[in-house]
Design a protein around this nucleic acid. Structure first.
Lengths: 230, 230
DNA sequence: TTTATAAATGAATGGCATTCATTTAGTGGT
DNA sequence: ACCACTAAATGAATGCCATTCATTTATAAA
């Protein structure tokens, strides 16, 4: 009788914990995709991506690990759910409500900020067909419309967005880099130009060097890509 | 006698396989960092990064998995060795031998091409202190010198390189994306602007859409960052 | 009441990186 | 020639991980 002791556990879980049950939905079980996404997000917040294991996720939902597989095909599916949720947090509001440059700037900073806390998702996004990610697709729709309305020729819109996105993803990693990443250490004398440049940047005393690089690159992209408009 | 049967194996390995033994080096063992790097590279070429396990790597060197730990602290160390080797393949030759724009262009394409075959290293690079990667540091030195000689103010050099690198890493992922990544599927009617833009790009019939986006973004960055020169 | 189905269970399974006590074989000093 | 030292192997754990599977339960439908 493998499942008999578990009934008590699962039952007390559904009752004891903030119910994950939706109103109109058949009362099938304790779990659903929204609940899994929410729990995964909480887990990552607390333990980081190293702590996001199927076992830990199941435990946080008071459920056996194998139960998750009734709702997701694999751990990758969980990451996909996370990605799509995060896409909905990206600020696309200024598109259509102001100059193109300002909209892109707001969008790009927001996009980078959201994913800099979730860099382990970036390799997943890069290969994720948008079909599987409705919120992500919605973001692309708003951004594309913004580009079209700003006068971009249709055949350049996707490439321009991809170029910006590539920069954004790369820059998201940058945010998480340790402060001393460019310390040349014992090789300092062998690399005078680089060492000088690093020192010179450090002397500027910027709080977040990653922001300086991001701003520099983003403004270059905005003015460069902006020139494509007809 | 745990090690006695293995002697034959290890011995026949050193003899049977293309010797990894360096000339002037004390005859200590079969392994060294260069040999491990080489073997890892061959393994990745054949089986991809999923095939790069410590067990498989050891087997390709005719050695027990635990033997590797006499030369590297962890698997991450192996990835570091790989990264630094790949950095030496990036083309920095035109720096100092032509206009800054051309040098950056060549360097960036080469950098992207090398790492687009090794995207699993990107999360590693992003957090890798350059101290541990002499070849990488050498690349930075050449590039920094090129920027300085082109008239960049010293305090902007590192930020400019970081911006370019961020774009390069993001774009490297892009190369590996499936062709149908932007197929909106059943949501096509709900996303007219995006769907139209995707269709319009597809009709251009570019062989590698990723190259179009990379070129667009790179040229924008080159002209935007080029404006920083004094 | 019966039947079908969705959604749990817990016990494997197999793969993985890493650790450890032990053994081996060379090196340098006496 | 002997001996101690040490670098570099061995193979047998260890512990973590995602995933699978036969089985059981509880609800919904008929």
């Amino acid at each position: 009788m493998p499942a008999s002791p578990a009934v008590a556990t699962a039952g007390s879980a559904a009752a004891g914990q903030g119910s994950r049950r939706r109103a109109g939905r058949p009362v099938g079980g304790v779990l659903d995709k929204a609940g899994i996404t929410e729990a995964a997000l909480r887990l990552i917040e607390k333990k980081g991506y190293d702590g996001l294991t199927m076992a830990a996720l199941a435990r946080s939902l008071n459920v056996a690990p194998s139960a998750l597989y009734n709702h997701v095909k694999s751990k990758r599916d969980v990451l996909l759910l996370l990605e799509d949720h995060l896409a909905s947090l990206v600020d696309v509001s200024p598109f259509g409500a102001g100059p193109w440059e300002d909209a892109v700037r707001t969008w790009a900073w927001s996009y980078r900020d959201v994913f800099s806390q979730h860099t382990p998702l970036i390799p997943v996004i890069a290969v994720l067909p948008v079909t599987d990610a409705p919120q992500t697709l919605a973001m692309y729709e708003t951004v594309s419309a913004g580009f079209r309305d700003a006068g971009f020729p249709e055949e350049r819109i996707v490439s321009s967005i991809v170029a910006l996105e590539s920069f954004i993803f790369g820059s998201a990693y940058d945010v998480t880099a340790p402060a001393d990443i460019f310390d040349p250490g014992t090789m300092a004398e062998a690399t005078p130009s680089f060492t000088g440049a690093v020192r010179s940047l450090a002397e500027q005393g910027h709080e977040r060097p990653a922001d300086v690089a991001f701003s520099l690159g983003l403004e270059a992209l905005i003015s460069g890509l902006g020139g494509l408009r007809g």
